[in-house]
């Protein structure tokens, strides 16, 4: 038994080192003046100053956040509305909604994006607007995660029962859905929403296919400048990682809050 413990620890350490290696090296690289020998030389914040004053990169982060936030909001609201009707009035529609919401998990982002582009590009409608297309594709892309998250939370709190009880007390069902059920499931909702947000913020494939030239996000910026100064790039990578870290922390916190509420 002891022997196994040692083996397990060794394995954990090995994998952790492998996982940390690119992170640590990028971090050190971004702070050093140059690294062409065994040990990096000099310490500098120059590259961070450069990156953080680079408006193109900063705008890229803002753009990435905007096109990650809007789809998350749209998808969450539309799934919440649809599932309200399903739970209250049309239980037999559940399977249909589930099928269509889970299809995107089989067809991956690249196929969704190329097929939408092939269908609507060049058609002179609002659908051919690249940014509109991008937002809608993102909506489809995060549909499975959002649907699963919302569905599980709605059933966990026994929505149908709560709504019926509220109706008996004289409230309209939709009113109590918005004022009672949704606030109750909000922590779980935030959790899946933040996960989708992080996924969309880190997307490169779809943005490249749809709108890389018109809507340059941070990822697209990194790609365009891939052959410029390596230290500056590393600094940009570290900044993006920090943003991810903040989102992760938020996810973690929303999970803990949920546990706290349950414990009470």
């Amino acid at each position: 038994m002891k022997e196994h413990k040692v083996l397990k620890t060794i394995w954990k350490v090995c994998v952790a080192v492998f996982l940390l290696m690119p992170l640590v090296v990028t971090l050190i690289y971004s702070f050093s003046e140059r690294w062409i020998n065994i040990i990096p030389e000099g310490f500098t914040l120059e590259y961070y100053v450069k990156t953080l004053t680079n408006t193109t990169f900063l705008m890229g982060i803002v753009r990435g956040m905007v096109t990650a936030l809007i789809p998350v909001l749209i998808t969450n609201i539309s799934v919440l509305l649809a599932l309200y009707v399903v739970i209250v009035y049309l239980q037999n529609m559940e399977k249909v909604v589930q099928l269509f919401c889970l299809i995107p998990s089989t067809i991956n982002g690249i196929i969704v994006a190329t097929s939408v582009l092939g269908t609507y590009a060049g058609s002179d409608t609002v659908f051919s607007n690249r940014i509109f297309m991008l937002v809608m594709i993102y909506c489809v892309f995060i549909m499975p995660v959002t649907y699963q998250g919302i569905r599980n939370s709605l059933y966990a709190v026994n929505t149908a029962g709560i709504l019926e009880a509220a109706e008996m007390l004289g409230y309209r069902k939709f009113h109590s859905y918005v004022t009672i059920v949704i606030p109750t499931i909000l922590p779980g909702l935030c959790n899946s929403a933040l996960m989708s947000f992080a996924g969309l913020f880190g997307d490169f494939a779809i943005i490249k296919i749809i709108a890389a030239s018109q809507w340059e996000t941070a990822q697209a910026y990194l790609y365009r400048n891939r052959s410029t100064d390596a230290q500056e790039l590393s600094a940009a990578v570290v900044i993006l990682l920090l943003i991810t870290l903040v989102i992760n922390y938020a996810v973690h916190k929303s999970q803990n809050d949920k546990k706290g509420v349950r414990a009470e």
Binding site: T26, G202, L233, V237
Partner: peptide
């Protein structure tokens, strides 16, 4: 993942 990972 994606571009940052590849750059790292």
């Amino acid at each position: 993942s994606g571009v940052p990972l590849s750059i790292a």
